[in-house]
Amino acid sequence: MNVYDQLTQLQILEHAFVEWKDYRKALTYYIMSQFPTKSQLAIWGAGRCNDLDLKILSEHFGVICLLDKDESAMKEALKQYGLAESNKVQIKVCDFTFIGAEAYRTYADILVKEVRKEGLKTNIHQLADKALCYLDNVEMDFDKSQLDLGTKSYEYAVMIGVHSQLISMFDWIWQVILQTLGQEDETVRQKIIQLNEKVVRKFNCAFWQATKYKAIVGCELNKSNQVGSIQGAIQAIEQIEKEILKGTVKREQTTYFEWPFNKSQGVSYKMQLQVLQMNQ
């Protein structure tokens, strides 16, 4: 099995729905306190909605639209909350980056193929050059892509923990390779950070354009067992500040939640949630 597919399976937390119960309840009611009843809500990066109670939200909002590239995950969410037959919750399959699964599989295959040639004797600098060359091509293709999800398509929007996942697989795959070799390298990580800035900027522009009135954007400030910022999330936070200064959006409120990501491993995130008003 490709390294990408193995890592994708690890992202599915079987106990998330149960372990996130209190977090889900707090987050759900916070969202309802910020947006009016009978309005339209878009949930970006919805996935399985383990962190949001769709049943309760569907009783507050007139229409809910789930946006994610994983259609099966969204359908599981509808089933989980007893909304499979509901006409109040819609599904929209969309990729926020246009960097699909095949791009990650190819990236992983290239690296694994090189490592198999020399094993632990692999020259890390030559391997990094292979990774950088591939990422340069990904960047060129990304620069040509256009992410358009409409203009003022959704009255209100929620996007929580999405930015950190946009291209996280590139770094995750590279870290697995480094751990296997017992080597260190920062050049590839720096390239991924640079690419993250571009991806987040384009994604945010589409998000602002598609949201009519107000949005809640949540990003990971830190991880309980990790020193340093969360890639993707830190770029999003920095870019939101720039948009506030430019006048694209206005911050109404900032609050914080503790996300019990994986209780068995003692992993949690401090989440920063910002309520942002779109300037018309």
Rank of each mutant, 00 (worst) to 15 (best):
Y4A: 03
Y4S: 06
D5N: 14
L7W: 02
Q9P: 05
Q11C: 09
I12Y: 15
V18E: 12
K21C: 04
Y23H: 10
K25N: 07
L27Q: 15
T28V: 08
Y29Q: 13
Y30W: 12
S33V: 09
Q34S: 08
F35I: 00
F35A: 04
T37N: 07
T37L: 06
I43K: 07
I43R: 07
W44Q: 04
G47W: 12
G47Y: 03
R48S: 06
L54A: 07
L54G: 01
L54T: 03
I56D: 05
F61C: 06
G62V: 04
L66F: 15
L66R: 03
D68M: 04
E71M: 07
S72T: 11
S72D: 15
A73V: 01
K75C: 02
L78Y: 06
E85G: 12
S86A: 15
I91E: 01
D95E: 12
T97F: 08
I99N: 01
E102S: 13
D109C: 04
I110Y: 11
R116L: 11
R116K: 14
K121R: 15
I124T: 12
H125S: 10
A131N: 10
D136Q: 14
F142S: 00
S145C: 05
Q146M: 13
L147K: 08
D148K: 08
L149C: 08
T151E: 11
T151N: 10
K152C: 01
M159G: 10
I160H: 15
S164G: 05
Q165F: 01
Q165E: 00
S168Y: 05
M169W: 12
Q175Y: 06
V176R: 06
L178H: 09
Q179I: 10
Q179Y: 08
D185V: 09
D185I: 03
V188W: 10
I192F: 01
K198S: 11
K198D: 05
Q209V: 06
Y213F: 14
Y213I: 02
K214E: 13
C219G: 03
E220D: 12
L221M: 12
N225E: 13
V227T: 14
V227C: 01
G228K: 03
G228V: 05
G232K: 00
I240M: 04
I240T: 04
E241Q: 14
L245P: 00
K246D: 05
E252W: 03
E252T: 09
Y256E: 15
Y256L: 10
E258P: 00
Q265N: 09
G266L: 13
V267N: 06
Q272L: 14
Q280M: 14
Q280I: 14
